[in-house]
Measured scan of single mutants.
Amino acid sequence: MSGNGNAAATAEENSPKMRVIRVGTRKSQLARIQTDSVVATLKASYPGLQFEIIAMSTTGDKILDTALSKIGEKSLFTKELEHALEKNEVDLVVHSLKDLPTVLPPGFTIGAICKRENPHDAVVFHPKFVGKTLETLPEKSVVGTSSLRRAAQLQRKFPHLEFRSIRGNLNTRLRKLDEQQEFSAIILATAGLQRMGWHNRVGQILHPEECMYAVGQGALGVEVRAKDQDILDLVGVLHDPETLLRCIAERAFLRHLEGGCSVPVAVHTAMKDGQLYLTGGVWSLDGSDSIQETMQATIHVPAQHEDGPEDDPQLVGITARNIPRGPQLAAQNLGISLANLLLSKGAKNILDVARQLNDAH
């Protein structure tokens, strides 16, 4: 009898209710805020589980004197976190989706994509230029951005401005803007500013005609071990179906173009009346040469937790077992079709030249 009692006690200790789920994140304040929001949602869904947040620095956090596009290494903000995932030191990792490459290392998958916040870019102005827009900034004003995508589009749109690289986390960039006289304004992701509670610093939100956004911008991705079915089931509740389908289309477009950090590629997606609209573009580094096109596809946005595919093969690095396969494939095909259209119009040449120029500098 006593033996059975011990077995029952052991089973209770090993039951999922007692389990601590370890969540990996970057150390920056924004990353911690984003991770806290994901953990809060998981806690609400699984009140019996405990969650421990483990923060670590990544290569991208450490190399702050070089433009991201020049470092010449993929997975700048993800490699150390993936290493911890691989060694079973954490069970899942919360990322900004735009930091996750469209091809993940073997053994990993994006197990959830959370509801997207505003994906557009924002302009934050130096205190002396508050009330201005990019259009009304004085001639030769210097605007800071760490992104080739932003610089290429904005140089084309605002030729009277000069664009220079600015690195560091959000706090560091804002301090550089406010305390030094080098920059009249800087460009940042609206979602990051909003998550930090800095709505009052948003001086201008850039519309798609001015600057399309990065693939996955404004959404959070939760990376897990691809074979860890328990954790895949656990994080599945975080999937937002519309965000998922938009981001599958965007990531398929980028992957098929073979774009990345070192080339200016941008997108804009919208879901309306059962249609998914995808606009994508590529630019030369100075913005003088560009190709942009829009395509659409009829896609039914499923309700969360309709029964999805059981075999769960990944699409552009994403596993969404609780979302039907048909809409996911339709979104992926839309991204591939748009990429093929741009490639047929000469996108590869623009991107190759951009890559060579970026590598040469």
Rank of each mutant, 00 (worst) to 15 (best):
L357C: 01
R32P: 01
G317K: 01
L137K: 01
D286S: 08
L220Q: 01
G274R: 05
A252W: 01
Q34C: 06
T78P: 01
S75T: 15
H256F: 15
D286F: 07
M212C: 01
N171T: 12
E242L: 11
T35G: 10
Q155H: 12
V282P: 01
V130W: 06
Q180L: 12
N88K: 14
S146E: 01
L81T: 10
Q194S: 04
A122F: 03
L161T: 08
R195P: 04
E242K: 10
Y46T: 10
E250G: 01
V103D: 10
V237D: 01
D311S: 05
A67M: 01
L334G: 15
H239L: 05
P309E: 03
N322C: 15
L154M: 09
A249F: 01
R116K: 03
E86L: 10
G259V: 05
A226V: 12
P309V: 15
H239I: 10
R22I: 14
L81A: 04
L357I: 14
C247F: 06
D91H: 04
A320N: 01
R325C: 06
I186T: 14
V39Q: 08
R251P: 05
P47E: 01
S96T: 01
P47C: 06
F158I: 12
D65C: 06
K70D: 09
T78V: 10
S96W: 01
L100V: 08
G236C: 15
E223T: 07
E135H: 04
L329W: 05
Q50L: 13
A266I: 04
K176F: 13
D289Q: 15
V143D: 04
Q275Y: 01
S288D: 14
H207S: 13
A31I: 01
D240Y: 13
D91V: 04
G308A: 11
T102M: 08
D61P: 03
S337C: 11
E210L: 13
G72T: 09
L81P: 07
A360Q: 01
G144S: 06
D99W: 01
S28N: 01
F129P: 01
K227G: 04
K176L: 12
Q204I: 01
H300R: 05
K176W: 10
A122N: 11
D65F: 10
K140L: 11
I53Q: 08
M196C: 14
K176T: 10
I336D: 01
E306Y: 05
H268K: 08
V103A: 07
L97K: 04
L338T: 09
V142N: 11
E250D: 15
E52C: 13
P324D: 15
P119N: 06
L343G: 10
Q217V: 01
L104E: 05
E162C: 15
G280D: 04
W283M: 01
A214W: 01
Q194F: 01
S344P: 14
Q153V: 06
R173Y: 01
R355L: 10
T66M: 10
L234P: 01
G221P: 04
L30V: 08
G218S: 01
L206F: 12
I54M: 09
R173F: 01
V224L: 15
C261S: 01
Y213N: 10
A191F: 04
F77Q: 04
Q50S: 01
P47N: 13
G144C: 08
L174I: 12
F51Q: 06
C114W: 08
A303P: 01
L220N: 03
N340W: 15
D312A: 12
L174E: 04
P101H: 12
C114F: 08
D61Y: 05
T78Y: 06
G236T: 09
Q314L: 13
L334Y: 05
K345T: 15
R173G: 01
H199S: 13
P241Y: 01
V263D: 03
P264Y: 01
T190I: 15
R22Y: 09
H199F: 15
E210R: 13
F158P: 01
L276W: 01
K132L: 10
G197V: 06
I71Q: 15
L76M: 12
A297V: 07
L92Q: 04
R246N: 08
Q181K: 12
G192D: 04
G197Q: 01
L278S: 07
V94Y: 03
Q181G: 11
V316Y: 01
Q292H: 14
H95P: 01
Q29I: 07
N349Y: 06
A185V: 09
L42P: 01
Q180H: 12
T269N: 06
H83L: 14
V353A: 09
E135Y: 09
A226R: 07
R173V: 01
P105Y: 03
E73M: 08
R156P: 13
T319H: 15
V93G: 08
A122T: 10
T102Y: 15
T243N: 10
Q153F: 01
A270K: 15
R321I: 10
R164F: 09
G24W: 01
M56R: 08
E293Y: 07
H305G: 14
Y213F: 04
K345G: 05
L244F: 01
R325F: 14
A330F: 07
W283C: 07
D311N: 12
V316E: 05
A339G: 15
N349T: 12
R321D: 04
G335L: 01
L42A: 06
V235M: 11
P119S: 10
G308Q: 15
D240R: 01
A252F: 01
E258I: 13
N322L: 06
E210K: 01
G218F: 01
D99H: 07
E306D: 07
G335W: 03
R255M: 13
I110A: 01
Q194K: 13
T269A: 09
E117C: 13
L30H: 01
E139H: 14
D91F: 01
F51K: 05
H207Q: 12
S288I: 14
A55G: 08
S337W: 01
R246F: 05
I299W: 04
N340G: 11
E242Q: 10
A31V: 01
G236Y: 01
L245I: 12
D36W: 07
V123T: 14
E135M: 14
G281E: 15
A303M: 04
G107A: 09
A31R: 01
V130C: 14
Y277D: 07
D65Q: 07
H126S: 14
V202G: 10
P241T: 08
L245D: 01
D121N: 04
R149C: 03
K27G: 09
L357R: 14
G326S: 11
V215D: 01
A112Y: 04
V93F: 06
H207C: 11
H207Y: 14
E139M: 08
P208L: 10
L148N: 01
E209H: 09
F77S: 04
I350H: 15
E310Q: 15
D36Y: 10
E162Y: 15
P313R: 13
G192F: 01
Q356Y: 05
L193H: 04
S165A: 07
K176H: 09
T136G: 10
V316N: 01
V353P: 08
N171S: 12
Q314C: 13
E209N: 01
S344R: 15
N171D: 14
F253V: 05
N118Q: 09
L177K: 01
D65P: 09
D91K: 12
D307T: 06
V90D: 01
I63M: 13
L206H: 01
V202A: 10
T78H: 05
L276S: 03
E306F: 15
G259H: 01
L30Y: 04
L81I: 12
L49V: 13
L343A: 08
Q194H: 05
L254S: 06
L329R: 15
H120L: 13
Y213A: 01
A354E: 13
V94Q: 05
F183S: 10
A249T: 14
V142G: 09
G60K: 01
V263A: 15
E139D: 13
A112C: 14
P106C: 14
L42C: 08
F108L: 13
G48I: 09
P138I: 09
W283F: 01
P127V: 07
K43H: 09
T41I: 12
G168D: 01
Y46P: 01
E135Q: 14
G287H: 05
Q155L: 10
K70S: 07
M271V: 10
T35L: 06
V265P: 05
L134S: 01
D289C: 04
K348P: 03
L278N: 01
I336L: 05
V353S: 10
S288R: 03
G326Y: 12
T35Q: 01
A189G: 09
N171M: 11
L30D: 01
H120Q: 09
T294C: 01
N118E: 14
T319S: 11
H239Q: 07
